[in-house]
């Protein structure tokens, strides 16, 4: 009788094999332990991707912080902060919001104060964009968009959109309604907060067969297909559309441009404020700011990030510089529900 072959499975072999198999998990676990996580409430899509590519991967991760993304629209995000503001532990560390929403949250006492001691780069922010609780990330002026192929004399004022020759050929994304109302108020009433005058002008624009689009992206291709001749849009989007091959150009209205300012806030009850401050500081680094300008067409909010080359040309403001109007967040946050209701019943519903 032959001896049974000696088993190759030894105790040492099993231990070595197990260690080898478990190595990736151990390494990942060690890395996860090293990186401090924080919850980032943000928009999805391009914005989230660019945050990852320009802020988190090159800067924030090197500082040992890593985001857990809570993607969604701004209003539910703000509502979440409001609803949980009295709880000892909140659900978000950093929330991306527009300036108007940030004001409303600050008014409710839901936001942490941001100082240069917490976020040193805030000292580089442009005047008028930051507040005690809001750190601006990107900004863009609202301009008049037009088709350079079909519009030989570019529009110079909101009033030009009312021209009957643009009947049925003027439009913008429906979601921008509040900024369009401000632009109309600025033209007709001399103030972005003059909503009564704005209502009159926008009602006239509506009778010029105004076209409304369900998303920002869907308002670009109509310039290519010939559906739209003129509209209202952010300068940033014009740059993006141009880069995508859409023949569209920007004209700065002589009455002034409303500024779209988007940034970030830290809720008072954020579970990991230290990581949140580090992230805000990384977001204000010139390299991160230039990345957003190059890829998304938004202007840097810090003075130490200088644009060069094609981006500088695309995003250049004309000379003399146009009047730039920072919306009055205090007035707007109170006016928004009434204007939204009016828009839905009067402009959309025709």
């Amino acid at each position: 009788m032959r001896d049974a072959p000696k088993s190759a499975l030894t105790r040492r072999g099993v231990l070595a094999g197990s260690t080898l198999l478990a190595a990736p998990a151990i390494l990942i676990g060690a890395k996860a332990k090293a990186a401090e996580t924080f919850i980032l409430g943000t928009w999805g899509g391009d914005y989230q991707r660019l945050q990852m590519e320009n802020i988190e991967m090159p800067i924030a991760r090197a500082q040992g912080i890593e985001s857990v993304i809570d993607a969604g629209d701004e209003a539910p995000r703000a509502a979440k902060i409001m609803a949980s503001r009295r709880l000892p532990r909140g659900q978000m560390d950093v929330a991306c919001v527009q300036a108007v929403q940030a004001y409303a949250l600050a008014e409710a006492g839901a936001l942490e104060e941001i100082t240069p001691a917490k976020v040193p780069n805030i000292v580089h922010c442009q005047d008028g964009l930051a507040t005690a609780t809001f750190v601006p990330h990107i900004w863009s002026p609202q301009i008049l968009s037009y088709s350079p192929e079909r519009v030989k004399t570019p529009p110079t004022s909101f009033e030009d959109l009312l021209d009957p020759k643009y009947k049925g050929r003027v439009g913008f994304p429906d979601a921008n309604f509040f900024y369009v109302m401000m632009a109309a108020g600025l033209f007709a009433g001399g103030s972005a907060s003059n909503f009564e005058k704005a209502k009159e002008i926008v009602s006239k624009l509506n009778t010029n067969e105004l076209r409304l689009y369900p998303s920002t992206d869907s308002a670009g291709p109509p310039f290519k297909t010939g559906e739209l001749d003129v509209g209202v849009m952010w300068l940033a989007r014009i740059a993006m559309w141009q880069n995508a091959g859409i023949p569209v150009a920007a004209s700065f209205p002589k009455e002034g441009c409303i500024l779209y300012v988007s940034g970030m806030v830290v809720p008072k009850n954020a579970p990991n404020k230290e990581a949140a401050f580090k992230y805000l500081n990384a977001m204000l680094e010139p390299a991160a700011q230039l990345g957003f300008a190059k890829n998304m067409g938004y202007l840097p909010t810090v003075t130490n990030a200088k644009l060069t080359g094609k981006v500088a040309e695309q995003l250049a403001l004309p000379t003399p510089p146009p009047k730039l109007v920072v919306p009055d967040a205090a007035v707007n946050s109170k006016a928004l529900p009434e204007i939204a209701d009016w828009w839905k019943k009067t402009i959309q519903h025709t």
Partner: peptide, 26 residues
């Protein structure tokens, strides 16, 4: 209705979402 009807075509579900999302009127 949102994508094919556009903002001017109003049905109940999009209206509900508008009130929730744009106005935060829960």
């Amino acid at each position: 209705p949102v994508l094919l009807g556009g903002p001017r075509f109003q049905m109940m579900a999009p209206l509900l979402f508008w009130e929730f999302n744009t106005n935060s009127n829960w």
